[in-house]
Amino acid sequence: MIVPFEHVLAMASALFVLGLTCTLVRRQLIMILIGVEIMLNAAALALVGASAFWQQVDGQVFVVLLMAITASEVAVALAMVFYLRHRKGTIVADQFNRMHG
């Protein structure tokens, strides 16, 4: 392994926190979804690092499954963004508060 495992994990967590920040502070649905993508990639990085650390193939297999799930999630989410834009004429997340208590 070329670098210590901790460094890989630190990088993955930095990436994750960036994605989280994006999700928390941005208002557009598109940007929130991009934040989610970043976080998923952080997870992928951690998995690949783990796979390299333990010399096992399983981590990489999970990354492939993760990609497939991400693809389906993005397909539905973007279709929904499209739909909502047509319904409400906006994609600002906080405008969709009809389900308030």
């Binding site: 070329i2 901790e6 920040t21 928390l24 650390f53």
Partner: peptide, 28 residues
Amino acid sequence: GLLLAASIMICTLLIIFQDPSAASHGPN
């Protein structure tokens, strides 16, 4: 948001470096 992110970052790093693993196992 940044405060929250920073806290999570610190916690994660603390957890990661709490118990340093042995160096890499052999070659790539």
